[in-house]
């Protein structure tokens, strides 16, 4: 494996291969999350019988059947719609999801581009999806869609701030925004002088991690923050006029971003691809697997909350972001900074 990675085939081909791999990985990640959590875990937790039935064992065929259904749906664009914007909106959401994966490291060298501004870039491009959502809601020329899109925009910008500010604590501790740098800082860290495990930042940044999870929940519009798509009042909000594959792109955007955020959280506070005592080529080999296990643990938390809590009210949602999460995040930055300078 070390030898294989050491072969230099030029940056152009390297980039091409990485792009193709990630291109396959994102829908796969979305499907894994959709399958494991949305279909199976939800069925078990809420006693839903439907998704457990198709194909026999645990309803393994459900997702394949869903895919085929989407493939056969007629492509309908309402005649009132702003056609060009309507068609472009799902693409913007998918682009936003794709761009996050540029910086997520799955090994010391297994990363598309290890940008110096890593985590800052990831959060910046993740917020591009707001534009896609607003475009979809506006272009649909539908009252439900517009209401849903505006709710989504108000929610996404309100929770963008706790998300950004929660990460600052990790950046302060690691002294870098580069994601591989953050992983290495955790791997080489020590808990009160004992370096057997490194220093996963969840021990010191548990407040930041909790804030990040809550904000990510809202950014992904998962219940209890799913007012933008509230199916019982807004009939899926900004997605109401989309059919077939165009609808599927919003699904890929949602679950692909959930995959990315879980990977990001795992990288920031759980040590990412690093395993204690594993270095060099072996880390490249084991990295993707280690990161996958950690990100599934984070995703489990996100979906556990989703399947357990009822929906918040719109004013409660805004109050929670502005009155609680942002002040706590600001305090967290200062306390982390104090410890960093002091110790």
């Amino acid at each position: 494996m070390t030898h294989l990675l050491a072969v230099d085939i030029g940056w152009g081909w390297t980039l091409a291969i990485k792009t193709v791999v990630v291109l396959g990985l994102i829908p796969l990640g979305a499907l894994i999350l959709g399958y494991t959590f949305l279909l199976k875990m939800m069925s078990h937790m809420q006693s839903r019988l439907g998704p457990m039935d198709p194909g026999g064992f645990h309803g393994w065929f459900q997702l394949v059947g869903d895919g085929m259904k989407f493939l056969q749906k007629e492509d309908i664009m309402p005649e009132q719609a702003d056609r060009r914007v309507f068609a472009l909106a799902p693409a913007v959401v998918v682009i936003s999801t794709f761009l996050i994966f540029v910086v997520i490291p799955t090994g010391p060298r297994l990363v598309v581009k290890d940008l110096d501004v890593g985590v800052f870039y990831a959060l910046a491009v993740s917020s591009l999806s707001i534009i896609g959502v607003l475009m979809a809601g506006w272009a649909s020329a539908n009252k439900f869609a517009l209401l849903g899109a505006l709710r989504a925009a108000a929610q996404l910008i309100a929770y963008e701030l706790p998300l950004l500010l929660a990460v600052v604590g990790v950046v302060v501790q690691a002294g870098t925004m580069n994601l591989n740098g953050i992983v290495t800082a955790q791997q080489n860290g020590a808990i009160f002088g004992w370096d057997g495990l490194g220093n996963p930042y969840i021990l010191t940044q548990f407040v930041g991690f909790a804030l990040f999870l809550v904000a990510a929940q809202a950014e992904l519009t998962q219940t209890p923050f799913d007012m933008p798509v509230a199916e019982s009042e807004l009939v899926s909000g900004y997605m109401v006029e989309y059919t077939g594959f165009r609808f599927l792109f919003f699904f890929i955007g949602e679950f692909g971003t959930a995959f990315a955020f879980a990977a990001l959280a795992a990288t920031l506070v759980l040590g990412g691809w690093a395993l204690p005592g594993v270095h060099g080529g072996t880390a490249d080999l084991l990295g993707p697997l280690v990161l996958f296990v950690k990100l599934m643990a984070v995703a489990f938390l996100i979906f556990w909350v989703r399947f357990t809590y009822p929906r918040l009210r719109e004013d409660q949602l805004q109050a929670m972001a502005w009155k609680y999460l942002i002040p706590i995040a600001l305090a967290n930055i200062l306390v982390t900074g104090l410890f960093k300078v002091w110790l």
Binding site: L15, I95, F98
Partner: peptide
């Protein structure tokens, strides 16, 4: 790489919609 990824995303959206056109009614 960022620019390439934007292109790849657009390409995937286009390819899936194009492939769907062959099948859907």
């Amino acid at each position: 790489a960022v620019a390439v990824f934007i292109g790849a995303a657009l390409g995937m959206v286009g390819a899936m919609l194009g492939a769907g056109r062959l099948v859907r009614p």
